[in-house]
Design a protein around this nucleic acid. Structure first.
Lengths: 206, 206
DNA sequence: GTCTATAACCGGATAGAC
DNA sequence: GTCTATCCGGTTATAGAC
């Protein structure tokens, strides 16, 4: 998603990513994408037949980036707490660089459920590893049992929601102070990890 | 938001709520709102000068409903765990009836930050109560200390995110099985409460 | 207040020259 | 491949009768 001297197709995709993420499918304008890519509007239709097709292409690009990351975390971890720490740190770090992506993805997925179909089959997502690591932790008397789906949702919730709800958090809880919000985000990964560990670990050391 | 025989203005607002929540500001069509309200399109402009003004009115209506609830929970609670239980149960119950509201509110707030300004001053939101109840719990040796803002965000995250991320949860973790998703939501309030208690309480009883 | 008809505009898509 | 010019459908908004 970051290149300098690139062919036209890539320039269009980069521009479209930017505009679609900021404005959403309905709010985005082909003219704005063309301007952003520094080309003519007609050229968009030459490369991608329609706005809808361009959107689909872009969405896959963006979504697969996120999903891939989650998959890697799962594969590279051998212990449930380690997996959680990796997920939390990497997700918060990733989103921080692209703060509007979560709202974009969630919003468009809700309004175009068909978008997810292809993705599911493309990235099979093996959550049995989660079950495995949880069972192992329980067996070794390290953690309380927790259903995998609830654990995953807890982790994703606490990492992603703070970005999607930035206006609410900043506006209602932090007196509209952006510096305070940034500090809150700075602390977030550490807090989430220790919050989850405190809940899961049997001999709560912290 | 629920009435039967009502005046035209209210009929329009109800219809607009429904359409805006489903389609968002950009995706909504004045024609569809008129159809939904069973009136003529021109009448929309007679009551509210423009789509934008109608949207603003509707957004305030929807958002204030949610904020009010949070405010009531805070005032009616005398103990931090009680407050959390009330918040979790009420929020999940509330959203269940209106599953598209969270995505709508978050999405529009992110794209129109000015929307929040009026709301902030309208509902001053007193979070000092949170600080108070946490301090009290810590003093009585009941809970570990936690920053109010992180606690509130944790609670809201784990309640709201499961609805916003329904397509992801269902598609990737529950084999696209809606029955499983409903069961997951059924369990959710209980799980979240016990997950938070397990993290906060000093003598972990469960 | 409520309607029909229409103006005014915008934005996606295409034609056709280069 | 890239451009300019243009078409055409859809959408907001208004005019004006009742």
């Amino acid at each position: 998603m970051v290149s300098v001297t690139e062919n036209t197709e890539q320039k269009i995709i980069d521009a479209a990513c930017k505009v679609f993420i900021q404005k959403g499918m309905d709010g985005a304008r082909m003219q704005e994408i063309a301007d952003e890519a520094d080309i003519n509007k007609a050229l968009l239709h030459y490369y991608f037949r329609s706005k809808s097709k361009l959107f689909d292409r872009v969405f896959v690009e963006i979504f697969s980036d996120i999903v891939k990351l989650l998959g890697e975390e799962i594969n590279h971890s051998t212990e449930i707490i380690e997996l959680i720490e990796r997920m939390v740190n990497n997700y918060i770090h990733l989103i921080r660089e692209r703060p509007f992506v979560p709202d974009f993805v969630l919003h468009e997925l809700n309004r175009h459920p068909q978008l997810i179909v292809q993705q599911i089959h493309q990235y099979g997502m093996d959550f049995s590893k989660f079950q495995l690591l949880i069972d192992e932790g329980v067996l070794n008397n390290k953690i309380h049992y927790i259903q995998p789906v609830h654990l995953i949702v807890n982790v994703l919730s606490m990492c992603i929601f703070p970005f999607v709800a930035k206006p609410i958090i900043m506006g209602f809880m932090l007196n509209g102070d952006e510096a305070k919000y940034n500090q809150f985000i700075d602390e977030r990964a550490g807090h989430v990890v220790s919050f989850i560990k405190s809940s899961l670990l049997i001999n709560n050391p912290e």
